[in-house]
């Protein structure tokens, strides 16, 4: 019969029992889960069962993580994600969320650029921790990303993005995510990137502040290679601050647009 052991297909004898499976394949496991339910009693396995065996504190290898993702995402999809190279300009509320979403699904490579350090006021929406205050954001983010999925290649640049260095940072990516804070920086990057890299996609964001409705955040295809996420109008200003929920919605619009572009070369 066919079962799944840690998401990998495995042909085993009929009537095989759980503990025997453990003895054969992962003797030192101390957590056994059958079809989503933890168990400590031996039992006969059935065709199609999903068995997960975990040793507490043990890190799965990069290959194991990849095969888990293959099983979840299907091999064709995973292959395309793994080949994806994505740039992220800005590692604040948008950029840190986009980076984490893409690394969780096994993105091949990220080039992340930011010149800031983590400040206490960032923690209301950005993917950093109290013990990272004062650390350059790109260094803190790389550390956090490595804890999620060490297989993704993360290139970081602790610098300010300017027209002169855009080619250096993002010349090799397929898709660039604009995740800056100020309107001027957003426009500068968009103008420069779309004109100088007409074959690459840009996924930008505008209008993400406050606690206005979730559903006014939209993804719009502005031109063939230019996608824009946000409500277009909610600027960050006194009385309307940037907050984790809505910034996260916009960031995940961006991340999902990147995913669609990697898989289908278009997005909606």
């Amino acid at each position: 019969m066919l079962i799944y052991l840690n998401e990998k297909q495995l042909e085993v004898d009929n009537q095989l029992c759980l503990f025997e499976l453990r003895n054969r394949h992962k003797k030192n496991s101390d957590l056994l889960i059958i079809n989503g339910h933890p168990t400590s009693t031996d039992q006969e396995l059935s065709h199609g069962d999903h068995v997960v065996m975990i040793r507490r504190g043990e890190h799965p290898s990069a290959e194991e993580l990849e095969s888990l993702m293959m099983a979840r995402h299907t091999p064709d999809v995973q292959q395309k994600i793994k080949q994806g190279k994505v740039g992220i300009a800005g590692a604040g509320g948008l950029g840190s969320h986009v980076a984490i979403a893409l690394v969780r699904i096994g993105i091949g490579q990220l080039n992340i650029v930011d010149f800031d350090v983590v400040e206490p006021s960032n923690l209301n929406r950005q993917q950093y921790f109290i013990d990272q205050i004062g650390t350059p954001k790109v260094i803190a983010l790389k550390e956090n990303l490595r804890r999620i999925n060490p297989a993704s290649k993360i290139n970081i640049f602790n610098q300010k993005v300017m027209p002169e260095n855009i080619a250096e940072f993002f010349g090799e990516v397929d898709i660039l995510v604009e995740a800056f804070d100020t309107a001027e920086q957003k426009a500068m990057l968009t103008n420069y990137f779309l004109r100088n890299f007409p074959d690459k996609f840009l996924v930008a964001a505008s209008g993400i502040a406050g606690y206005e409705p979730s559903n006014t955040i939209r993804t719009t295809k502005v031109t063939e290679k230019f996608y824009l996420c946000g409500d277009g109008v909610s600027a960050a200003e006194p009385g309307r601050g940037l907050m984790a929920p809505r910034v996260g919605i916009a960031a995940h619009h961006q991340a999902n647009t990147v995913l669609q572009l990697l898989l289908n070369n278009t997005a909606e």
Binding site: F180, A187, V247
Partner: peptide, 28 residues
Amino acid sequence: IILSPETHNVTKLKTGDTIELVQFVGGG
């Protein structure tokens, strides 16, 4: 075609042009 910002003042629009305009707002 994306217009270079330096040419805003010399680029004349004419009948039939199709223009996409995006103004960014701050926040990220």
